[in-house]
Nucleic acid binder design. Structure first.
Length: 490
RNA sequence: CGGGAUGUAGCGUAGCCCGGUAUCGCGCCACAUUUGGGAUGUGGAGGCCGCAGGUUCGAAUCCUGCCAUCCCGACCA
């Protein structure tokens, strides 16, 4: 454990990298672009998984598992899909190694696969190939399946959690009898993601639709939630795709409707990944370390004893054990850290770095007065309170912290969201304060591309339920009926 | 994948220009004193100098190739 963290002002990007490794979330592995998610980081991911999984099941979905490998030929069946992923696929060509006689292990050329296997970058193709066998009638629909898996995309430039060559995610793949039902599903899952981001991660998000250029390869419509990080850059936190009949047509998945008519099945897919971990870190944390929302914190409360001698330590431990039991009874995860190998100040700093929402410190003084010192991570405020009713107090405090973190993130987003009406203003805001910029756009990919090339800002989304208003495109001056959200993004 | 930078003990580094087996701090181990915000003292351990070749009597240092990381581009969840 080393002292000090680069501050956000000094170098935001370095702050992020240091924080992820120093807080024990993840580290680089021996494999380029691939990370090791360490136990502390993984336990946060597990909390995310648990919350999301429950929400998926509450909306009628079941989990299943499909293969890691996809035959190459499957990819070419959906034209825009292959185009979108072809340049970043890991390909398995052989199934055996051998000893070359000089003590080196080499690929056995005799063990060449007849058809190469692609390590899945996403599973639409293998799943729709499977669904063909599952669906004959409208009675077989809908199919509401989710998969928790790892995928591989051979990214050129990687960053821990935000973009790794291999990442963990969930991908939902649903099949429906009607277009309306599929769109409804797409929107429902976007809503699940938004609710999760806001209620669990305490990250406010904009719900919107991607423009044609930013759409998922093979989708008719891509819905997304967009979050804003502290440095004013946007992060796509989750996507939900309406795939139309594209994959059903590519994999020949037809069903007989109630009316006896043969038709292609309607599809959706939706996913969030370990990238959410990056969002969580960048949205809330400060120069002292992580700030975790209580609902996702592996340890919600830590108790640090401060003692002189074994006798006092034993007395404090007795009281602490009672507090631990009381908190556990309320389903609050608590750690009593009575390690004698580290001093209190060290522990304080360590738990701040790791983002534990509430710290209770208890020493001889408290023992006499029947009090404890409570410190909250989000505001760093300390308070000495009576042990009487401590559990209720902590419970309420955790809720308050959850809410406060959200409010802070929301206030930051509001402060960093700007309406502009000219291209000059657009560029100026982008370079000075960043954030979301709400501006009129003529709706053409050409304009979007030109703005991206000139400013590095992309259209993050067209917000859902967007206010309709007449205006002129900031670049071309052509008429526009609504504003869209621009930002520089991760 | 293009441009730039970096790689020396667990971490951060000096040494490299000008070749002679490696400096310092933190951390680690032992003991003692300590414990209300990252303790102090004494003693100790720890190094394929990113990897592989080459030049040389001799390479952390010079040359070539490779690998990885960071930053900037293009690509992307």
């Amino acid at each position: 454990m080393s002292k000090g963290l680069t501050s956000r002002n000094e170098d935001y990007s370095q702050w992020y990298n240091e924080l992820v490794t120093k807080a024990d979330l993840a580290e680089h592995s021996a494999v380029r672009g691939c990370m090791v998610i360490k136990p502390y980081g993984y336990s946060i991911w597990e909390k995310m998984q648990a919350a999301l999984d429950k929400m998926f099941k509450d909306t009628g979905h079941s989990n299943a598992y499909f293969p890691l490998f996809i035959p190459k030929s499957f990819f070419s069946k959906e034209a825009s899909h292959v185009e979108g992923f072809a340049t970043e696929c890991a390909v398995v060509t052989h199934y055996r190694l051998k000893n070359d006689g000089n003590g080196n292990i080499i690929v056995d050329e005799d063990a060449k696969l007849e058809e190469e296997l692609i390590v899945r970058p996403t599973s639409e193709t293998i799943i729709w190939n499977t669904y063909r066998g599952w669906i004959q009638s409208y009675r077989d629909l809908p199919i509401l399946v989710n998969q928790w898996a790892n995928v591989v995309r051979w990214e050129m430039r990687t960053r821990l959690f935000l973009r790794t060559a291999e990442f963990l995610w969930q991908e939902g793949h649903t099949a429906h009898a009607t277009k309306e039902e599929a769109i409804e599903e797409t929107e429902r899952m976007l809503d699940v993601y938004a609710t999760f981001a806001e209620e669990f991660m305490a990250v406010p998000v904009i719900r919107g639709k991607k423009t044609e250029t930013e759409r998922f390869a093979g989708a008719l419509d891509t819905y997304c939630i967009e979050a804003l990080m502290q440095d004013g850059k946007a992060l796509q936190a989750g996507t939900s795709h309406f795939l139309g009949q594209n994959f059903a047509k590519a994999f020949d998945v037809k069903f007989t409707s109630k009316e006896g008519k043969l038709d292609y099945v309607w599809a959706t897919s939706w996913g969030v990944s370990t990238r959410l971990m990056g969002a969580l870190v960048m949205a809330h944390s400060d120069d002292a370390g992580l700030v975790l929302p209580p609902k996702l914190a592996p340890i919600q409360v830590v108790i640090v004893p401060i003692y002189k001698g074994d006798e006092e330590r034993a007395k404090i431990s007795e009281v602490a054990d009672g507090i631990v039991a009381g908190l556990k009874a309320r389903n609050i995860s608590v750690k009593y850290d009575d390690r004698d190998t580290q001093r209190p100040g060290f522990k304080f700093a360590e738990y701040e770095l790791k983002g534990v929402p509430v710290r209770i410190a208890m020493g001889g003084r408290d023992l006499e007065n029947g009090t404890v010192e409570i410190a909250r991570r989000d505001t760093k405020e300390k308070q000495t309170i009576s042990r009487e009713g401590l559990e209720e107090h902590i419970s309420a405090l955790l809720d308050e912290i959850q809410q406060n973190i959200y409010n802070k993130a929301l206030a930051l987003r509001n402060e960093k969201t700007t309406e502009v009406n000219s291209y000059d203003e657009f560029k100026q805001v982008l370079d000075t304060k960043g954030g979301f910029i709400s501006a009129h756009w003529d709706g053409t990919p050409e304009t979007e591309k030109k703005i991206k090339e000139e400013t590095k800002a992309t259209i993050r989304c067209i917000p859902l339920n967007n206010k309709q208003e007449e205006g002129a495109c900031i670049l071309t001056g052509k008429p526009s009926s609504q504003r869209v959200l621009f930002a520089r993004a991760y």
